[in-house]
Simulated scan of single mutants.
Amino acid sequence: MSKSIRLAFSLLAEAAGNAMIARMRNYLGPTRLRLIFFLLAGTGLMSLFLNASGGDAEQVAELQTALLLIFIVGFVLIIASRAERYNQIRLLIVLAPSFVAFIIGLFVIPDLLPPLLGAALGWVVASAFLVRDTRRAEYKMAVKHLRRNEYAEAVKMMDSLIKLEPDNEEHYRFRAVILRIWGKPGRAKRDYVKVTELNPDSAGAYNDLAEVHLQMGEFEEALNAAMKAHELSSNDWVTAYNLGMIEDRLHHPDESIRYLQLALEHDVPDARHRLLIHFYLARAYVRKGELDAAEQAVSELKAHKQALKDWRKILDSEQSVTLRQVLGADIEAARALIEDELELAALS
Results as ranks from 00 to 15, higher is better:
M141Y: 12
I104L: 07
V193Y: 11
L7A: 14
L45H: 06
D191P: 04
E153M: 04
V195Y: 06
H230R: 05
R287G: 02
D340R: 11
R90P: 04
G44C: 08
V298F: 06
S234V: 10
A154Q: 06
D267G: 05
A66M: 13
S4R: 15
E170I: 12
R249G: 04
A271S: 11
A19I: 08
D236I: 03
K189M: 15
L67M: 03
A128G: 14
L301S: 01
R25I: 04
V73W: 07
V298E: 03
P97I: 04
D56S: 09
G54N: 01
E84Y: 14
L161Y: 00
L112Y: 09
R190D: 15
R258P: 04
E138D: 09
V94A: 02
R335V: 08
L48T: 07
I246L: 07
L28Q: 00
L301G: 00
A83Y: 11
V124W: 04
E211V: 06
L50A: 09
A346R: 09
K163W: 10
A188L: 01
T196P: 04
N87S: 11
K163M: 10
L113P: 00
R132S: 12
F174H: 11
Y86M: 12
T322I: 13
H213A: 10
I257G: 05
F38I: 11
Y86L: 15
Y192F: 15
I162Q: 04
H230E: 02
A83R: 10
G217T: 02
S348I: 06
A294V: 02
L95N: 01
E150W: 03
R32W: 03
A137R: 13
T196C: 07
F279A: 03
G204L: 09
L67G: 02
A137E: 13
V73L: 11
E220K: 13
V212D: 05
E84S: 14
P269Y: 01
M1V: 08
G42F: 00
P115M: 04
R175G: 05
D248L: 07
Q215S: 04
D248K: 03
L113G: 01
I5S: 12
A336H: 10
Q325I: 08
L264Y: 05
K163T: 07
A303W: 06
V193S: 15
A119Q: 07
Q296H: 13
N87I: 05
Y206H: 06
F107S: 01
V238P: 05
R272K: 08
A240Y: 06
S299E: 14
Q64N: 14
P166H: 13
V212I: 06
M141W: 12
I89P: 00
E58W: 07
R249L: 09
P30R: 03
E221C: 05
V177Y: 07
E14Y: 13
M20N: 12
I178N: 01
F9S: 09
L48R: 10
S98P: 00
N207F: 07
V321R: 09
S317W: 08
R287S: 07
Q325T: 13
P97Y: 02
R274Q: 13
